[in-house]
Design a protein around this nucleic acid. Structure first.
Lengths: 169, 169
DNA sequence: CAAATTCAATTAACCTGTGTATTATTCGTA
DNA sequence: TACGAATAATACACAGGTTAATTGAATTTG
C-alpha cells in the first residue's frame, strides 16, 4: 500500500473520502426513513429555526438557492415542510416545518450521534476537539478564498488535451 | 453566530463543507482547462499507474464502477484517455493515458499545491500533519464501518412524515 | 414618477455520485 | 465437461451539487 506519489492531491483526497463515506453511512442508516443526509441537514436547521427564506437557508447550508429549491420540493412532497409567503417580500418564500418532521428530532440526532461515534472511534476527546478546530480553520480559509475569488474574475481559456478536447458543452 | 444547537450534526457538516468548498475552488481553477476535480483525481492515479481496469480504478478512487464508467466516457471524449482491452479477461477494459494528458502533469499538481496552500494557510507544519493523520484515522473508521455494514443487512421500513410521505420513487 | 438595476426563486443542462438490473464472460465445481 | 455462481462493464433512474438564463418583484436612481 505505498501508492503515494500522490502527495499534493492527497489532502483533498482524504477530505473528499471522509465526507463522502460519512454521507454514505448516514444515508444507509436513513434508508428506513426515506430520508437523505442532505435533507437531514436542512431539517436540522429548520428544527433550529423555522420560517427562513430559501435564500437564508442556502446561506446556512452553504449551497446554492437552486439546490435548496429542489430539496424543498422533495421535502414538501414527503410531507415534512411547506412553503409560505413572505409578507414583506413577494419574491421570497419561507420554509416551515410540518409537525411530522418536528416529532422526529431525537431520531435524527440519534443517528447523527451514531455516525460520530463510528467516525471518531479510537480518538480521544482532545483529539476530536483538535481535529474539529483545525477543520474549522481550514473551512474559514476556503470560505475566504472563495469570497475573494468571486471578487476578482478568472479569464484565460486554454484546454489541455489537443484539438478535440472540448468536453464542455 | 451562536447557531449551535447543532452539535451532533456539526462534525459531519464541517467535513462536508470543507470537502465541497475545496472542490468548488479547485473546479474554478480548472475551468480554463475544461477539467473538473473528479477528473483530476482520476488522471492523477493514471499518471501514477497506467492501464488499470475500471474496477481497479474504482477501488483506488473509492467510488462505484458506474461512476468510473461515465467519467472515462468524458475523459475519452476530451481526448485524454482511451480504453484498451484486457488480454486476460474479455469482460474488463483497461484505461490508458494519452500523451496530451501526460504532458500536463505539472500543471495539475501546481493547482493542487495552490489549493493546499490556501486550505492550510495559518496552520503550522505540525498542525497540518496532525490534521491529516487524524483524518486518516477517521477515514479508516468509516471504511471499516461501511465494510461491516455490507456484511450485515438492513431491513426495517418506516418512513417519517405520515401517510403521504413516500418520496422514494 | 419612470427606467434601470438588483434580487429570490425557478428552469434547464450538466457532472458526479448512488443503487438496481442486464449482459457477457469467467470461474468453481458437481 | 457442463452448469451455476460470481464478476466487469454498463444502462437506467435518481439525489444533489454546479452555472447560466428567465421571470417577476423590489429597489435605486435619474
Amino acid at each position: 500500500m505505498n501508492d503515494h506519489e500522490i502527495q499534493d492531491l492527497e489532502p483533498g483526497f482524504i477530505f473528499q473520502r471522509v465526507a463522502r463515506q460519512r454521507l454514505r453511512l448516514t444515508d444507509k442508516r436513513l434508508v428506513p426513513y426515506h430520508l437523505t443526509s442532505a435533507q437531514v441537514f436542512m431539517l436540522n436547521w429548520l428544527l433550529h429555526r423555522d420560517g427562513m427564506t430559501q435564500k437564508e437557508l442556502a446561506q446556512r447550508l452553504s449551497i446554492g438557492t437552486v439546490a435548496v429549491s429542489g430539496m424543498v420540493d422533495r421535502l414538501e412532497a414527503a410531507n415534512l415542510v411547506y412553503r409560505g409567503e413572505d409578507p414583506t417580500d413577494r419574491r421570497a418564500k419561507k420554509v416551515w416545518l410540518k409537525e411530522s418532521a418536528r416529532t422526529n428530532k431525537e431520531l435524527l440526532s440519534g443517528i447523527a450521534k451514531e455516525i460520530n461515534d463510528v467516525s471518531f472511534q479510537g480518538l480521544s476527546k482532545d483529539e476530536i476537539k483538535k481535529l474539529l478546530s483545525l477543520m474549522e480553520r481550514v473551512r474559514r480559509n476556503l470560505a475566504e478564498a472563495l469570497d475573494a475569488d468571486d471578487a476578482s474574475q478568472w479569464l484565460n481559456t486554454r484546454p489541455i488535451g489537443g484539438k478535440d478536447s472540448d468536453i464542455a458543452i
